[in-house]
Nucleic acid binder design. Structure first.
Length: 506
RNA sequence: GGCCCGUUAGCUCAACAGGUAGAGCAGCGGACUCUUAAUCCGCGGGUUGAAGGUUCGAGUCCUUCACGGGUCACCA
């Protein structure tokens, strides 16, 4: 950089073309700071505590204890409020978790420095150095001796009392949401703790964390429409993965008996309060176990998470109280549909009547088979009625092309879906390991695709070949991290648990 | 993609039946050395999401569009 060309000649131009009076005033303040030669955007800061750490480490000390021993701090934070009273000023600085009051007195810092504070605005990031005391009302406060810029804010912050309410702005400018709304920051801290707890849970049990392709030649492992892209050098179409499943099972073939992956999946489908085109999935596979053991492991995992996040197994979700207390309800898929669909038994048992009924529930997904009809009814009528964690077991084999069939009822899959608060949170099964049967299932799916079913699985012979080398009995499960976070952080929209949810560009 | 709702000052919100666009916070000026949604006095701030239309007159009614929320469809 050319220093000669630097500060003074720099254009005072913000991204927004039209500036409000407040923004013009802030630019003017910045110009004055330049004239005074003050560093507004320093390279580093000598910090002793964060705001959170000050509050955490000193809140237990009373007035006398604080004044008896001199506790000095150098703490960074964003100015959130200013209360000026002539020759003294109170203001709060904040990090993403806590606020800390600062007391600035002219007789402490000198008239010149005190007047300098007029060039500081709400929103500026500053460093305050001073000693801790308690005010008359008992609030832990820094008596400032020095203060300096860490960054100037050229735009006014949203209103201090109501925060940032505009939902669209909260998603588009998430940083403002995080600055203004502690609940939102808290949600993302919960999310982070969930992910690290998941890693700890699986690491402690000897699982290996792996990464498998996000760009795939044949998008498999789930029934969904993929995003398509193109590799220039190779001249081939590639697809963003809809699931990592088939690669993870290849690893189990390779002898990695316990593997998991936490990463993004991409599905080219609609966007709503439970769906974002990119979402985070945990998938894990363990050799030698079946889906019954997976249910036990799942209960164990979720109880662990609830304890990590809430300290107990019950917690609120909207109007409901969710309980992870074991054992969880296990309900056969067919029985769930029978119970909750409100359908008379005679019609339920008559495939034609059932298909007809299911057809009335959906516009462009007309079921053609008994199994698909059950699936539609489950999605439309049943799922939303299940609030407490419930394993819906043994759905039709036909809609489970990668799962083993039940040994005694071949029309059913050795599979479960976990429903909580009306949402599908996990999906798991005893993996289909027989290469001949897998190939046949793929071909059945291909036949369905021929008849126009876009949701059918593509044939992946490379995967079948892997099975031909021998996949031991394996249980595999996928858990939707975004939805799990919704449940544990008490959020009703998936956009509230994804930092930057997909929005149309403005 | 369909339907319903929303979009007004930097932010949070008002504006009756179509009749001069307001308030609080924030900002600016002033008073104030324990305030905390500080207080008190004064001041500035708007192409009412965009474009058309109806009307003497549109934030308000109509049409189209954009973005968002809800819901249905698809999906997890």
């Amino acid at each position: 950089m050319n220093e000669q060309h630097g500060k003074k000649d720099r254009q005072l131009k913000l991204v927004q073309e039209e500036l409000s009076d407040q923004e013009l005033i802030r630019l003017e303040k910045w110009r004055k700071l330049q004239e005074k030669g003050l560093e507004v955007f320093p390279h580093r800061a000598e910090v002793s505590h964060s705001v959170f750490e000050v509050v955490r480490d000193f809140s237990h000390l009373n007035k006398e204890e604080l004044e008896g021993k001199e506790y000095r701090v150098k703490v960074p934070g964003r100015i959130m409020t200013i209360r000026k009273m002539g020759r003294a000023t109170f203001f709060h600085i904040a990090d993403c978790r806590r606020r800390l009051q600062v007391y600035l007195r002219e007789d402490q810092v000198g008239p010149e420095n005190y007047d300098l504070f007029d060039l500081f605005d709400i929103g500026d990031v500053i460093l305050v150095e001073g000693r801790l005391f308690r005010t008359r009302t008992g609030e832990l406060t820094v008596l400032a001796e020095k203060f300096s810029f860490l960054a100037k804010s050229f735009h006014p912050l949203p209103e201090k009392w109501h925060g940032l309410q505009d939902v669209e702005l909260r998603y588009r400018k998430r940083y403002l949401d995080l600055i203004m709304n502690p609940d939102s920051s808290e949600t993302f801290m919960v999310r982070s703790r969930i992910v690290s707890s998941l890693r700890k849970f699986f690491d402690d049990r000897g699982f290996l964390e792996v990464e498998t392709p996000m760009m795939q030649v044949i998008p498999g492992g789930a029934l969904a429409r993929p995003f398509k892209t193109f590799h220039n050098a190779l001249g081939i179409d590639l697809y963003l993965r809809i699931a990592p499943e088939l690669y993870l099972k290849r690893l189990v073939v390779g002898g990695l008996e316990k593997v998991y992956e936490i990463n993004r999946n991409f599905r080219n489908e609609g966007v709503d309060s439970q769906h974002n085109p990119e979402f985070t999935m945990l998938e894990f596979y363990q050799a030698y176990i079946d889906y019954n053991q997976l249910m036990d492991l799942t209960e164990e995992l979720f109880v662990y998470l609830a304890r990590e996040i809430h300290g107990k197994e019950e917690f609120p979700y909207g109007e409901e109280t969710i309980s992870f207390r074991r054992p969880w309800k296990r309900l056969k898929f067919q029985d769930a549909v029978r119970q909750y669909s409100g359908l008379a038994p005679a019609r339920f048992d008559d495939p034609k009547a059932l298909i007809e009924f299911a057809s009335t529930l959906t516009a462009d997904r007309k079921p053609t088979t008994y199994a698909k009809a059950l699936d539609v009814i489950f999605d439309k009528l049943v799922k939303e009625k299940i609030v407490q964690p419930t394993f819906i077991i043994n759905p039709p084999r036909e809609i489970s092309p990668l799962a083993k069939a039940d040994p005694t009822r071949p029309e059913e899959a050795s599979r479960f879906e976990l429903i909580i608060a009306g949402m599908e949170i996990a999906n798991a099964f005893s993996e289909l390991t027989d290469p001949f049967e897998q190939r046949q299932r793929f071909e059945e799916q291909a036949a369905m695709r021929q008849t126009g079913d876009e949701e059918s699985h593509l044939v992946d012979l490379d995967y079948v070949e892997a099975l031909e080398y021998g996949l031991p009995p394996t249980g595999g499960e996928g858990i939707g991290i975004d939805r799990l976070t919704m449940i544990l952080a008490n959020r009703k929209s998936i956009r509230e648990v994804i930092l930057f949810p997909l929005l149309k560009p403005r």
